[in-house]
């Protein structure tokens, strides 16, 4: 019994090393003075200097952020409507609707992205930021719906009835009660939608137009073209820190929600 426990413990430690080692090593070597990926010679910020003086990186970051913001807004509004409809109304065909919401989450992203591209070309829609945003949102709406709906399941609707008995009409009830009470759930879903959009590669890759690049697209094209390089390490480290920052926000929003 003791032996099994010891074995399991060591095994777990190795799994954790397996999980963290690649990123830790990548981060370490992004601060390496030499171009080498094998020997750490001295601490240096020169690779960061290189990427931060590259306007393409800044433009891509800017694009990622604003695309993410628009996608978040669209998917929150639409996802909220769908989640409200599903949680508050009973109607025939709900199982079909459930399937329609679940399919975007199950279907392999690459077929979704390519089909969208096929339609854009078929309909002569010029590729660019707009087509990217639509591509992200089509997927994120489903995701936001699923998340919001799970959260709304525990929402006590009598607070809305209470507001009605106190003289609030339907709109006042929605804006003064429903939205504020759900705010943490919406915030969490929104941050998730933003993260999904911010990190997305495949749909961006296929639906973007000439010259419009996001951060993952830059990482992808230089990794696919030139493999591992120290400046790409630096860029990835930068991107990782943004991802982690957002994850922390999301966790906080969820904690706050549980507190209510």
């Amino acid at each position: 019994m003791k032996k099994t426990n010891l074995f399991l413990m060591i095994f777990t430690v190795f799994v954790f090393i397996f999980l963290y080692a690649p990123m830790v090593i990548m981060v370490i070597f992004s601060f390496n003075e030499a171009k080498s990926l094998g020997v750490f010679t001295a601490f240096s910020l020169k690779w960061y200097e290189k990427i931060f003086t590259n306007t393409e990186v800044w433009v891509a970051l800017y694009n990622s952020v604003w695309v993410g913001a628009v996608v978040t807004a669209v998917s929150i509004v639409l996802g909220m409507m769908m989640a409200l409809a599903v949680t508050r109304f009973s109607f025939v065909g709900k199982p079909i609707l459930d399937a329609l919401i679940l399919i975007p989450i199950i279907i392999p992203e690459i077929t979704e992205a390519l089909s969208l591209l096929v339609m854009y070309v078929f309909l002569n829609i010029p590729l660019g930021p707009l087509t990217v945003i639509i591509g992200h949102a089509a997927f994120d709406v489903a995701f936001v719906t699923v998340v919001l709906r799970a959260r709304m399941a525990g929402y006590d609707r009598t607070v809305e009835e209470a507001a009605r008995t106190l003289g609030a009409n339907e709109l006042q009830t929605f804006f003064r009660i429903t939205l504020p009470v759900m705010y943490p759930a919406i915030l969490a879903a929104g941050l998730l939608a933003f993260t999904l959009s911010f990190d997305d590669l495949i749909k961006t890759l296929f639906t973007t137009g000439p010259g419009f690049k996001t951060l993952p697209l830059i990482v992808w094209s230089s990794a696919a073209r030139g493999g591992v390089s120290p400046d790409l390490n630096a860029l990835s480290t930068f991107a990782i820190s943004i991802s982690l920052l957002f994850a922390v926000f999301r966790i906080r929003a969820e904690k706050k929600m549980r507190g209510v």
């Binding site: 690649p22 990926l37 911010f198 990190d199 991802s243």
Partner: peptide, 20 residues
């Protein structure tokens, strides 16, 4: 929490023949 692409790239740095 790190994106799929960045995780894959991070692993590339281990697999590369010039790697650590």
């Amino acid at each position: 929490w790190v994106s799929f692409l960045l995780r894959t790239y991070a692993f590339m740095t281990l697999l590369d023949e010039r790697s650590f």
